[in-house]
Design a binder for these strands. Structure first.
Lengths: 215, 215
DNA sequence: CGCTACTTTGACGCTCCTCAAGTAGCGTGG
DNA sequence: CCACGCTACTTGAGGAGCGTCAAAGTAGCG
């Protein structure tokens, strides 16, 4: 079931972590930049994006922000094992989510080994993404980072897409500054790898050029 | 049960992921720089370090290396859900490990919800470490990265320790070069934050200076 | 004792950050 | 409907930090 299917076909108030793990929850709305959960708060719920988009991030002690992931319609976030959140999640835009009490997930996992496995599978994918992210942050240049970001987002949103996040969000995701991200976008447009009819609207023109640039 | 306890008290050929999950395995020895498992290979085993140390890493397509974690005596690594490893693990030094067939773990998790939870807890800690790592790689300067590394390793090896890894390994863990890591070490010694009687032997002299530097 | 691998140190250059100015898009109110 | 102000984005100039290249120093090992 792809992200797209989830928005269109899945029942609106269900979080579906796999064949053996569907949980009923309640819908909730968040405004642009509104906090969904914050570091240190009790982790009472897990979430699925219905519409809109979400950023998940961690802060250093002196306030610098690292965005760890973006979540688009159909995607699940906020599943933690610990009682308290170690991350902060905010709506990128006016966003609709389904929230399910964590106790329901705990109960399902305790009663059904297949459900526990679905949970584990989700954690495993999250971990794999985090590892790719570390490779990007540790070993790639600015152009490569932005190319990797664009390839990742267009895999989820298609060849032509509206970015739900600002340049500042992209910068904090890629470990760069706003200006560097902006220059990379401009340069890719100049090379006809992408089209930029407006700053948030991206057309993937030459995927292989980008794949090359992402190394 | 701490890492130190595990080397001294735990039965040598047991991998212990928590109160409900102890698995018997077999010992195996690896030489310095020997591969324990490689990307793409079937993930048949999980591992615990008995003595020595291990680096776990991922490569970019053009061969650049990002070290994701180091594993010291008592620590578990190589637990994957996927059938194939997406990472490579190598011995940093002459290293003794216990290996347990993954099928045993799968069986334990399928039969006992508490065992599955232990597995999930391990994944959760791994993920939390990966997130801290992303913050370091994305948003910290060279000095801060090295300080964070030293604090992390001394938390596991004590105030006075022998680094099992080279400057090149530290550089590939922190997203820096050998030279930059070396310069940061020298600078910290100059500030009496650490002592460096030899290049691999570190004495933590002023933890709070380092904690400050790690920001 | 001499080789080899690792580490340190220095000089220089490139990438990306900083600071600053200017532009574009958009909602609000006149 | 346009003026205005706000925020986001772009562009440029200059500088800092880290990478690159080169060489010398050090330690382990046959």
């Amino acid at each position: 079931m792809t992200a797209l299917d989830a928005t269109t076909k899945a029942p609106a108030d269900i979080i579906d972590l796999g064949p053996a793990l569907s949980l009923r929850g309640t819908r909730m709305h968040f405004e642009r930049n509104e906090e969904i959960f914050g570091e240190g708060e009790p982790a009472e719920y897990l979430y699925r994006v219905v519409s809109g988009a979400v950023r998940v991030m961690r802060f250093s002690t002196d306030g610098r922000r690292q965005i760890l992931s973006f979540h688009l319609p159909g995607e699940v976030f906020g599943i933690e094992l610990a009682d308290k959140h170690s991350l902060t999640a905010e709506a990128l835009d006016s966003t609709e989510v389904v929230m399910v009490r964590r106790s329901l997930l705990e109960k399902a996992a305790a009663e059904d080994a297949r459900a526990a496995r679905c949970w584990l599978e989700h954690a495993s994918h999250t971990l794999d993404n985090a590892r790719d992210h570390a490779l990007i942050l540790g070993r790639k240049g600015a152009g490569e980072r932005v190319a990797a970001f664009l390839l990742g987002i267009s895999k989820r949103l298609g060849q032509e897409l509206d970015l739900p996040m600002s340049r500042a969000d992209i910068a904090d995701y890629l470990g760069l500054t706003i200006e560097t991200v902006s220059r990379a976008f401009t340069e890719m447009e100049r090379q006809h790898a992408i089209g930029l009819p407006s700053s948030r609207h991206v057309v993937m023109r030459n995927r292989s050029t980008l794949a090359m640039a992402a190394a």
